[in-house]
Design a protein around this nucleic acid. Structure first.
Length: 156
DNA sequence: GCCAACGTTGGC
DNA sequence: GCCAACGTTGGC
C-alpha cells in the first residue's frame, strides 16, 4: 500500500461501568451505537478505518484517557434506532434514510493507568484541547495529532 | 446529588 | 424563526 492516507484522531467517551477497554479487548470489536447528538454523529461519519481513538472514561474514578482504540468499520446505520425495546429507539428516524450511525472499534492498547483529566488540565500543552475546555460534553470529538501523540507518550 | 452548559422540542 | 421549557451530559 503506497497510497498516502492521512490518519485522523478522535476521542470517544464511555463510562467504564458501561463498557471498558478491558471489555473491548475481550470482545475484540465493539459497535459504538447510541450516539444521539448531531455533531457527534457527523464526526462518526467522518471516521475512516484505521483512525485512532482515545478511549475516555467519563463519570468514573478516575476520569480520563484509558488507552487507544481504532476504527475497524466505518459509519453504518445504527440498528438501535429501529429497535423499539432499545432506549436509543428513535421513532422519527426514517428507515430509508436513517438518522443515526454507528462505527465499530477495536482495542489497540491500554495505558498502565488512566491519564486523568486533571493532568490534562494542568498541562498547558492541552489547553486548547476540546475535552479540557469547560462544558465540552460531546461524546465523540476530533483530536489534534500533536495532542494525540503527546497523550499516548504520557499514557505509556 | 448538584448544577452549569448545552442541545432539543414545540408553541406561537 | 424565536425562545422558554425541558432533558441530558458529565465534572465536581
Amino acid at each position: 500500500m503506497k497510497e498516502k492516507k492521512t490518519l485522523q484522531y478522535w476521542l470517544m467517551k464511555n463510562e467504564p461501568e458501561v463498557y471498558s477497554l478491558k471489555d473491548l479487548r475481550r470482545d475484540k470489536r465493539y459497535a459504538w451505537d447510541g450516539v444521539r447528538n448531531y455533531a457527534a454523529r457527523n464526526y462518526l461519519k467522518e471516521m475512516k478505518v484505521g483512525d485512532l481513538v482515545l478511549y475516555y472514561y467519563s463519570s468514573s474514578n478516575p476520569i480520563g484517557v484509558a488507552g487507544v482504540a481504532k476504527v475497524v468499520k466505518e459509519a453504518y446505520p445504527d440498528p438501535t434506532q429501529f429497535d423499539r425495546r432499545s432506549k436509543y429507539f428513535d421513532p422519527k428516524s426514517p428507515k430509508e434514510n436513517p438518522r443515526w450511525v454507528a462505527v465499530d472499534v477495536a482495542s489497540v492498547s491500554e495505558f498502565p493507568s488512566v491519564l486523568t483529566l486533571q493532568e490534562l488540565k494542568h498541562n498547558s500543552f492541552f489547553e486548547d484541547m476540546l475535552v479540557v475546555k469547560k462544558g465540552m460534553r460531546l461524546s465523540v470529538q476530533p483530536v489534534a495529532e500533536k495532542h494525540f501523540n503527546k497523550i499516548v507518550k504520557l499514557g505509556e
